[in-house]
Design a protein around this nucleic acid. Structure first.
Length: 379
RNA sequence: GUGGGUAUAGCUUAGUUGGUUAAAGCGCCAGUUUGUGGCACUGGAGACCGUCGGUUCGAAUCCGACUAUCCACC
């Protein structure tokens, strides 16, 4: 089995590692910054990402396929050149979007037919299409095309869906191997990560993980969590699946999550995360701090001249007051969103940095205990 | 000065032939956001319906006067 993550140190199940990709090294545990359409929402450009301690960008296959079109991105030299971000990029397979955003979907063995959320036109996407699109985008890591099921789900349906997602995975691997061998492919060393499914059923989760680990992929994700089940159920499923995950591969918990979720998942052996929470919440005025989450729209910040987070070293906290960001958000100035998004991304990325430092020092448990309740509070 | 119109929540307005706690949007106050349809969603507070008098069992609604404001004309 080829090694795709170098583990530097462990504490219990928690891992401090390095993933060496063709586009650079990812220090783990890591948070991936969501740039759905090739840009982080909130007017944040690739030029800002280094300053925000961003390591990996996550772009969406579904959105970029619809607009500007993956063929267009390929003509422009792939996502790295197009967005001018030279670090690692992970593309989501479109599986989740097809199932959550697109209307009138119809799932068959070949793939899924659905209508575009932009203009309603009918689109077909299956494993081969998803791989072709991701290959055109030229991301560092391509995710397998899967079915993401909302919880709770009926056992029989989950069983059937897992079997289909597994058959789709074989087709993904075959198609990506073929594409990586082609001369005119944007990124000929594109990685493929598989996705574990099985809803909240431990036996289906474990069996599915055993099925996909045999393919010796470049990484493994746990999908279909944080989609309706409780946090406790999510932790239980991670605990059940983790022993079946190869230790020499990156482990990615898709779509998660809150700061507490991330701490709990790191403690259970997860290396990578992505979530819309720092960006979406910022657009609605919520800022994360080491004391808890603040709603900057609240009237109490009108005359507050403190930085968003007094202990934060981000460009926003170093230069602007809560009162100013409050005013910009209330006035719906674009800069308000931008500043809030920049702060939240820096906060998430530096939170991960703190987790890594704690792991290196053998002090993760202590960090967890002193942080988990504080950062979850609302203030 | 004459004729006509309009006065309902902070703002813009809806209120059917007079009939229970007067409605909506924006704004305000708060909450929710977990592999992101870019500014969303869910709540809440807030009006003695311009003033005074009359008709009526009952008036935002009908009548009168007054006040404010708009339009036209002199």
């Amino acid at each position: 089995m080829k090694e795709r993550i170098r583990i530097i140190r462990t504490e219990g199940k928690a891992r401090r590692g390095e993933i060496h990709t063709p586009h650079g090294v990812i220090q783990t545990p890591a948070f991936m910054n969501v740039a759905t359409c090739g840009a982080i929402k909130g007017a944040v450009s690739a030029l800002d990402l280094k300053e925000l301690k961003c390591q990996v960008q996550l772009c969406n296959t579904y959105h970029l396929h619809l607009r500007p079109g993956d063929e267009t991105v390929k003509k422009l030299g792939g996502l790295h050149k197009f967005t001018n971000w030279q670090g690692p990029i992970l593309t989501d397979s479109g599986g989740s979007q097809v199932f959550s955003l697109a209307k009138l979907r119809n799932i068959k063995e070949e793939g899924v037919t659905f209508s575009s959320h932009i203009d309603g036109r009918k689109i077909f996407m299956g494993p081969e299409e998803s791989m072709r699109i991701q290959s055109n985008l030229g991301s560092t890591i391509a995710m397998a095309f899967d079915e993401c099921i909302e919880n709770p789900a009926a056992y029989g349906y989950v069983e059937e869906s897992c079997a289909r997602t597994l058959r789709w995975l074989y087709r993904c691997k075959e198609e990506l191997d073929r594409l990586n061998a082609k001369e005119d492919t944007v990124n000929r060393s594109q990685w493929l990560w598989g996705i574990n499914q099985g809803s909240t059923y431990e036996d289906l989760r474990k069996q599915h993980m055993r099925d996909i680990r045999g393919l010796d992929l470049d990484g493994y994700a746990i999908g279909g969590l944080a989609v309706g089940e409780t946090a406790e159920e999510m932790y239980r499923i991670i605990e059940a699946v983790e022993p079946e995950m190869p230790s020499c591969k990156p482990r990615y918990l898709m779509g998660v999550g809150t700061l507490a979720n991330i701490l709990e998942a790191v403690a259970r052996g997860i290396d990578m995360f992505d979530c819309v929470m720092p960006t979406r919440n910022a657009r609605h005025g919520h800022a994360f701090t080491m004391e808890g989450c603040r709603n900057l729209m609240n009237a109490k910040y009108e005359l507050d001249e403190n930085p968003i987070d007094v202990s934060c070293g981000c460009p926003v906290c170093k230069n602007h007051t809560r009162a100013y960001v409050h005013h910009l958000l209330k006035s719906k100035e674009m800069l308000g969103m931008r500043l809030a998004v920049m702060h939240n991304l820096y906060f998430y990325n530096s939170f991960m940095e703190k987790i890594r430092a704690a792991l290196e020092a053998g002090a993760f448990q202590a960090f967890y205990k002193e942080t988990v309740n504080k950062v979850s509070a609302r203030i």
